[in-house]
Amino acid sequence: MPTHVLQSVLPGLLQQVPTTLLYWFVPSAIALLLGTLLCIVRVGQHRVLYWACTVFISFFRGTPGIVQIYIIFFGLPKLFWAVHVDIDGWPAGAYFIIATSLNLSCFVCEVLKGGYLGVDHGQIEAGKSIGFGRFQNFFRVIAPQTLQISILNLKNLEIDVLKDTSVAYTIGAMEILGYANRVISNQFGVGQLWILGVAAIIYFILCALLELGFTAASHHMERHGRRS
């Protein structure tokens, strides 16, 4: 194992960890919000909105993430240019975050829908019967139980998103893999397999930490359901 390769590359790779976490966290936060809204429409009664959302979700679930990233990357500036707004100065990471947020929202929506359908309908009626309003019922009864049912599927989604941040380098956003690739091409490929191996181990550790966090969260959420 060439130690000097490791010594020169590892600090740089570790410096990119916050960027990767940013590319993971911002889409996750946006998608939780947008996914909830999509989910409310999908389980609701409004026909036109329902079909619009269904087509939207079908598109984002039926096309590869990398194609969506490319389309946003090339299409969004054109779209904004049509209304005379110049967004050419935006960093590549912004396009990645937008594309991933839209993509992830659709998957989160489907997971939350599954969780919502798993909530006992009696619970919602119980909430109404003790005088909760719509919002109170949503935040106190529906949302916590939906989350509890769907947390394991959410965990898988979030791990996928953390891993898919590595695609960002294809549009020039700098993160762990992008940095590794740049070092590889700067060194004309010396020690390329070792550098990629180190990057792989960093990703693995990040995924393991995320997994531990979600397991702890799901354990915490199930505290009321446990029988002693």
Binding site: I159, K163, T165, L193, G197, A199, A200, Y203, C207
Partner: peptide, 11 residues
């Protein structure tokens, strides 16, 4: 499962 497909492809 803990390593991105992109990294595996490049490797």
């Amino acid at each position: 499962k803990g390593v991105p497909l992109t990294v595996q492809l490049l490797f």
